[in-house]
Each structure stands twice: as structure tokens, then as C-alpha cells.
Design a protein around this nucleic acid. Structure first.
Length: 616
RNA sequence: GCCAGAGUAGCUCAGGGGUAGAGCACCGCUUUCGUAAAGCGGCGGUCACGGGUUCAAAUCCCGUCUCUGGCUCCA
């Protein structure tokens, strides 16, 4: 399976997408926050774009020799890139904000000025702004060339903007961070300095957004991973390699066991393939030629170079190829929780989400062209089941043929038809991702939305014409001729590391009962009830749940401890409960306590577990 | 890999040329408790690493490593 990329989709990073965003204004800017921002006289995007102009104005007032590059609006805010005589630090931001408020007080109207090319070139040259000259040169002939001006500032810009500075609330924006960014997103070009900010129609919305950012921080899987003792990283042991601690190990086991159940029920078979292979394998697959920088350095084995596997496909293909197949035996569905290693640049490593060693929930389906559609339907249905179980909303995208690609039109056509027909059969709407396919075939990619409204790259289903060709895989068809099977790659979790890292944030560390490493804490009020409490814990453990008995310190301390450890159920036992043979149940997020019999409680827990309930 | 910032106890952080600090966690004792932090005592650090300046460096300078925020990249 190719890289199962699951990463929060950040602000559009590339210049192209930034420009696209600036040119084609969606009626509603992309917004996936858990609150509805207030409306204003123009779009939020126009507001943010305007604030970015005001910021650029402020930065140049403070640093007149600075050069400006681009400053588009992005999701939830804006940025502007500069080349400045000295690097900016966070401490500069309040000073810039102050200058911006001053500008807002005097700016007045935002006006749009359309110039012909000669006049525009003249103006830009006179301003001594080389980046703007380059941008101007790239505006296609015949397109309008516009400048937006406010006060003493003017900028080559597509717009749109607010009408007047009065529409920009002085307390509705904030500069959030500074960062380096390549000019035009090209790592061979100048590193500019970027200031990110956020802007809203009101102080209230800004506050809501900042509170949202705090929530994002509080849920950061690295923070929760440390606090809840879920996982750790040890750069000296190996950068980008995850240590799963017992609690998270439990979560992973549950996910894996369920995954295997689902796959067995759908005709997949487990396979296990070596972690190391001789280099010729990856030459044959084409990965070594095309993605050498991603594959770990070779190791010498008996004088022959070997590589740690960066993907599982060649192994699965090798199994398929180890004997002749009849059309009667197809499709073959090989599944493996396959651990792979990829060299990711040091600056990109990020907790569990971007690592150098990870386990993919990989599977490859080898089928006849005629079976393709039905196989894809099976994958799409399974994907829906899995995503829904975690409470993820999703959108599926059909990624079509890219410019650089292999294979006949007819073959692509067939694969695309199969993907479309499969989606139609289960009434899965497909958004378009034109040219987004891989060079070896089209695919359906899922974007999933987590509890905070953030989008992540989700599952992917890819049709592959390349590997069957490269490994010359065949089956014997009904007409007794050898034919080429179609290969489908698919991963649903993607990688255990990314998926579980994402789950930690999605659930804010409160794993549902079926995953929870410790759903129950038993709290006797005094020593008198300890024996009874131990009895309750034994029953909880016998029912297949983890639980903990806490006896040390006052009750309220143990309640707090349980809450901090994100244990959803607290079973409190005082003299009353023991006398009545009942327990007092405190449930996370539920105000009222409940009294129930021990068996009733165990039944309740089982229901939550077996239904994979998302609430407690 | 690139730009910037940061590395002080397990965690969160203070200190800033003259013998290393706090809270939490952990250990021990006291406390026996009705739903989010009882009290006292103790353990714990080569102040990331290497070099330099200085009578003296955790502190100033240089280099390296790692982490953080972005950028590039993620078949």
C-alpha cells in the first residue's frame, strides 16, 4: 500500500492553492469550526485578505526596506510573506498589531484600481518590490491587473477586499505566529518570513476561535500521550520511531482484532512478509528509481545490498506470483498489518502522526477486470463501516488520471468506470479530484472530519496497473490464455500510528469502552469497603475489562485522579452500597450519579463495549 | 533538508557569572475520608552535548544534537 497519508490539512501551503483561493472566492469560505462565525458586510475571506494588507502596511512602516511577497487569506486567517533585514520573532508581533490598529484608524476606504500592463509595470517597478514584479509578470495576458489601496498603501492584488477600514474590527484579529516559508513554495528559492494571523468580524468570534485553538492544544496527542502514559519517543533510540506503552498497546490490539474479524468475514487472508529485501526487489517495483530518498540506506548482507521495506506490495505480489492462478481462484485478498520504514526528513517528524516506522493496515486484492467493480464495492462498504464506528464524517474524492502516468486510455477508462460504478452502487457521492490519481492508476481518497471539525487524509483505494506489469503477474483465464489481473491497494486505518494518534485527538483521550485501556475505577469510601470493592473489581476484570482499585487518600482526591486519568466510570462503594449490594456509579460527563446492582453495571458495560458506543 | 525559537528533576516551569529552585508525580509516616487536589518528611539534576572566554560558566560566545512552530516533502 502506498503512503497512507493522514495528516490534518493545514492552511493551503502552496502558492498555487493560495492564489487559487484568492481568485475564486467560494460563497462561504471553507469553514469547519465547531461554531458559526458571524456574518459581515463582505466574506470573511475578504476581511482576512484586507487585514493581511493592513499587516503588510504595518510591517513596512516599521521596516521600510522590507520586501513583500504574497498575503492571501487562508482557513481561519491569513498570512503575509516578507523579506526583512532581520528575522522576526514572536516578540515583534504586538508591536506590529499596534501599528495595524493605528493604520486602521487612518486608512479609510479600500479602493480598487485597474491598470493596463504598462502602467502596472511602471508602478510596481517604482515601488521597488521585486516579488511583485515577478507576480505581475505571471498574470496572463488579457486578465485584469488590479491594485487595492488603503491609506498610503497599495498592493498588486486580485481582491476582493472590504469597502472601508471601518469594517475591520480592531479587536477582531490577532497575529499568531512567525515562520519561514519558501518564495513560491519552492525549496530552491529564497526563504521568506511569514506572519500568520487570524481575523473575524467580532471580538466574540476571535475569542471563540482562540478557545478552539486552546482545545486543539489540550487534545494534542503528544501532550495526552505523555500525560496518560500512552506512548513515547526516544530520539536517541531512533528518531521518528514510536514506543507504544501498555495502555495504547491495548487500544491498538482492540483495533487490530476488530480489523481482523472484519477482514476474515470478507474473505481476506492474513499474510506475513519479510521486513528486509534485496535491492533488486525494489528496482523491479520501481520504487528505488523513483523514491530512493525515501527508502532507508542499504545494508550489506553477504555482499549484496538489502533494504528495509518501505511498502508491503512487493511482498504480496511475490506471494501471488509463487504459483499459477486460475480465474476460478480469483479474487485473492491478502491482508497484512505490515510494518514499513520510510525516511522522512527530520523537520517533518511529528509525534505519532509523521514517523519513520509505521504499521499499515494493508491489503491487496488481485482480481479479474470483470471483478474489479464488485471488489471496490466491498472496500467502500468496509470503509464506511469502519469510519462510522469512530464517528468520523467523511467525503470521498475520485482522483483521476494525472499528466504523468502509465497505461492505455482504455485501461484507465475501465478502472475509472469501475470506481464510479462501485460508488454509485452504494450511493457514495464522489467529489472530483481531477488529475489527483497516482501515475499507476486512479483512486478514491477519503477525507475525514474529526470531532473538532478538522479534516484529515483518510482511507484510500487505488487501482494499480503498474505493479502487475512490472512483476508480470498472470492468471489462467477460462479461455486458457494467460491474462493480467488487476491489483487494488487499500488501507483504511492508513497506519496504526497515524490513525491512533488521530483517535487520541478525536476522542480527547476518552477512548470509548470497547477501546478503553481502563474504563473503570473502583473507589471504596473507607477501609471498611475495600474488600467489597476488590470483589467488584474482580468481576469487572472477569468480564474482560481493565479496571483499577484506588484506596489511597480521600475520596475526592481519587475522583479527581480518575477524572484526570480519563477513566469514564467511577464505581463508588460506601457503607450504604455494600449493605444493599449495589454500587454508586459516576459517569464522565453525566451530572447525576446512578445506583445499580453490580451485575446490572457489568451488563451496562458490556452493552457499551459490544455496540462500540461512542458515548459513556 | 530550509527559516526561526527552545533544551534546567519523570512532568510543568522559575532562576541568569560566585556551591541548583518550586509545584505536581514518586517513596515513607500520619490521616479513614460520600464524588475534581488532606498533613508532614524524603528521594530525585554532569542545568542537551562539545569547545571557547573568565580567578569562576547552568548563565556570555562558537559548534553539534534534539525538540517546537512553519516551509518543502509524504508513491
Amino acid at each position: 500500500m502506498p503512503a497512507g497519508s493522514r495528516r490534518p490539512i493545514q492552511a493551503p501551503g502552496r502558492l498555487e492553492s493560495a492564489l487559487r483561493a484568492a481568485q475564486v472566492w467560494p460563497a462561504e469560505p471553507p469553514m469547519s469550526l465547531p461554531f458559526e462565525p458571524q456574518n459581515g458586510p463582505v466574506t470573511l475571506g475578504a476581511l482576512r485578505h484586507s487585514v493581511s494588507h493592513v499587516m503588510a502596511d504595518a510591517v513596512l512602516r516599521l521596516s521600510p526596506e522590507g520586501k513583500v511577497a504574497i498575503g492571501p487569506p487562508i482557513e481561519n486567517g491569513f498570512y503575509y510573506d516578507f523579506e526583512l533585514p532581520r528575522p522576526l520573532t514572536e516578540e515583534d508581533l504586538p508591536r506590529i498589531e499596534e501599528e495595524m490598529r493605528k493604520i486602521l484608524g487612518e486608512a479609510g476606504e479600500f479602493t480598487c484600481l485597474t491598470l493596463d500592463r504598462a502602467a502596472a509595470e511602471e508602478r510596481v517597478r517604482a515601488s521597488g518590490q521585486p516579488y511583485k514584479e515577478e507576480l505581475l509578470a505571471d498574470i496572463p495576458e488579457g486578465e485584469a491587473i488590479t491594485f487595492y489601496e488603503h491609506g498610503t498603501w497599495g498592493d498588486l492584488c486580485e481582491g476582493p477586499h472590504v469597502e472601508t477600514a471601518k469594517q475591520i474590527p480592531g479587536d477582531g484579529f490577532r497575529l499568531t505566529s512567525v515562520a519561514g516559508a519558501y518564495w513560491r513554495g519552492d525549496s530552491d528559492r529564497t526563504m521568506l518570513q511569514r506572519i500568520y494571523g487570524t481575523a473575524w468580524w467580532s471580538k466574540k468570534d476571535l475569542k471563540k476561535y482562540l478557545a478552539y485553538l486552546e482545545e486543539v492544544q489540550a487534545r494534542d496527542h503528544r501532550k495526552l500521550g505523555r500525560e496518560l502514559d500512552l506512548f513515547s519517543l526516544h530520539p536517541d533510540f531512533g528518531a521518528g520511531l514510536v514506543f507504544w506503552h501498555p495502555k495504547l498497546g491495548h487500544v491498538r490490539r482492540q483495533l487490530e482484532e476488530w480489523w481482523w474479524q472484519l477482514h476474515y468475514a470478507r474473505g481476506y487472508w492474513p499474510v506475513y512478509t519479510p521486513h528486509v529485501a534485496g535491492e533488486p526487489v525494489f528496482e523491479q517495483s520501481g520504487h528505488l528509481q523513483n523514491y530512493a530518498e525515501m527508502i532507508w540506506a542499504p545494508m550489506d548482507v553477504d555482499g549484496r545490498p538489502h533494504r528495509v521495506k518501505p511498502m508491503n506490495c512487493p511482498g504480496h505480489v511475490t506471494i501471488f506470483n509463487s504459483r499459477r492462478h486460475s480465474y476460478r481462484d480469483l479474487p485473492k485478498r491478502y491482508a497484512e498489518l505490515g510494518t514499513v520504514y520510510r525516511y522522512e526528513p527530520s523537520g517533518t517528524l511529528h509525534g505519532m502522526l509523521r514517523v519513520r516506522g509505521f504499521t499499515q493496515d494493508d491489503a491487496h486484492i488481485f482480481c479479474t477486470p470483470g471483478q474489479l467493480e464488485a471488489e471496490i464495492v466491498g472496500v467502500l462498504e468496509l470503509t464506511d463501516l469502519i469510519l462510522r464506528t469512530f464517528g468520523y464524517e467523511y467525503t470521498a474524492y475520485l482522483a483521476t488520471r494525472p499528466e504523468k502516468s502509465l497505461g492505455d486510455d482504455a485501461v484507465w477508462e475501465h478502472a475509472m468506470d469501475a470506481l464510479k460504478a462501485a460508488a454509485a452502487r452504494i450511493e457514495l457521492p464522489l467529489a472530483d479530484d481531477p488529475g489527483g490519481g497516482v501515475f499507476y492508476g486512479p483512486k478514491i481518497d477519503y477525507k475525514i472530519k474529526d470531532a473538532l471539525g478538522r479534516e484529515w487524509q483518510g482511507p484510500t483505494v487505488q487501482v494499480d496497473f503498474n505493479l502487475p506489469e512490472r512483476f508480470d503477474i498472470q492468471f489462467n483465464d477460462a479461455d486458457n490464455t494467460l491474462k493480467r489481473p488487476v491489483m487494488v491497494h487499500r488501507a483504511i486505518y492508513g497506519s496504526m500510528e497515524r490513525f491512533v494518534g488521530g483517535l487520541i485527538e478525536h476522542f480527547a483521550g476518552w477512548f470509548p469502552v470497547w477501546l478503553s485501556p481502563c474504563p473503570v475505577s473502583v473507589l471504596p469510601i473507607t477501609e471498611e469497603q475495600e474488600e467489597a470493592a476488590a470483589g467488584v473489581l474482580a468481576k469487572v476484570l472477569a468480564a474482560g475489562f481493565h479496571g483499577v482499585l484506588k484506596t489511597d487518600g480521600p475520596l475526592r482526591k481519587r475522583v479527581r485522579e480518575s477524572e484526570v486519568e480519563k477513566i469514564p466510570y467511577m464505581v463508588v462503594l460506601g457503607g450504604r452500597e455494600v449493605d444493599e449490594g449495589r454500587v454508586n456509579l459516576r459517569v464522565h460527563g453525566v451530572k447525576e450519579q446512578r445506583s445499580m446492582g453490580v451485575d446490572e453495571f457489568l451488563g451496562f458495560l458490556r452493552d457499551k463495549r459490544d455496540s462500540k458506543a461512542l458515548n459513556f
